[in-house]
């Protein structure tokens, strides 16, 4: 039988109890503690303050802090649940939980919708999709003529925007994704299954006396 007695006074500010976080997510207590090892690495890469700044997030993602990227910014803003300009450990675990292979499909669909709804109007508009395509071309070697971008947008909106009002609402998005399940591939991180083997040092820093998996 697992028996959890949290030790006190070892947690930095903003660090939530792993037992509580495990109870709210698909992660076990050990996995939350292993995620804390990753969190500590990222959050101390520029300033060791127990919080992930946008710069630290970009550094972890691209191994290059100068690389501005629309999509990385968008992910950061969605992880920054409390809109504080930084990601604390609770935000980090709850947000990564959506990317867990066992997370509900509906959570993944909703997260992807928010990701692409750049101005948070509740709709993915054609102009937003165009902006994302242009951002993609800027970051990659790919070159597409403006007419080609418009053809891609036409094709996409004919398929996704069922009522043809020029924007994709949540239910249109759900239908579109169910017909194109590969779109959700980015929403699952198989790495999250092996987090305790990737960061085994969590065992030495464990805050619970006994760890049940």
């Amino acid at each position: 039988m697992g028996c959890f007695h949290s030790k006190v006074a070892r947690q930095p500010p903003g660090h939530e109890d792993p037992v509580v976080l495990a109870s709210q997510t698909a992660f076990s207590v050990s996995e939350v503690e292993a995620l804390y090892e990753l969190f500590k690495m990222i959050s101390s890469s520029v300033v060791d303050d127990g919080l992930i700044s946008k710069e630290e997030f970009q550094l972890a993602l691209f191994k290059n802090r100068k690389k501005e990227n629309l999509f990385a910014n968008r992910i950061f803003d969605l992880f920054d649940v409390k809109q504080k300009g930084v990601i604390d450990f609770g935000d980090f675990v709850r947000s990564l939980n959506v990317f867990h292979p066992n997370a509900p499909q509906e959570d993944k669909i909703n997260f992807a919708f928010k990701l692409y709804d750049l101005d948070s109007t509740g709709f993915i508009e054609r102009q937003e999709v165009k902006q994302m395509l242009i951002a993609l071309l800027c970051e990659s070697e790919m070159k597409l003529a403006d007419e080609t971008i418009e053809i891609i947008l036409d094709k996409t909106f004919i398929e996704a925007d069922v009522d043809q009002d020029g924007k994709i609402d949540k239910s249109e998005w759900q239908n579109f994704v169910s017909r194109n399940p590969s779109l959700l591939k980015i929403m699952t991180l198989p790495y999250l299954r092996d987090i305790t083997t990737t960061f085994p040092s969590f065992v030495f820093n464990s805050e619970v006396d006994e760890i049940a998996t």
Binding site: N69, M132, L136, S140, S182
Partner: peptide, 26 residues
């Protein structure tokens, strides 16, 4: 696959900024 045969979201999802697996690379 030629990009023009892909829909916009398939293309967008190839962005490096959406590939969170790199967070786990030490």
């Amino acid at each position: 696959v030629a990009p023009v045969t892909m829909n916009a979201f398939e293309l967008i999802s190839t962005s490096q900024g959406l590939n969170l697996s790199t967070l786990f690379e030490k």
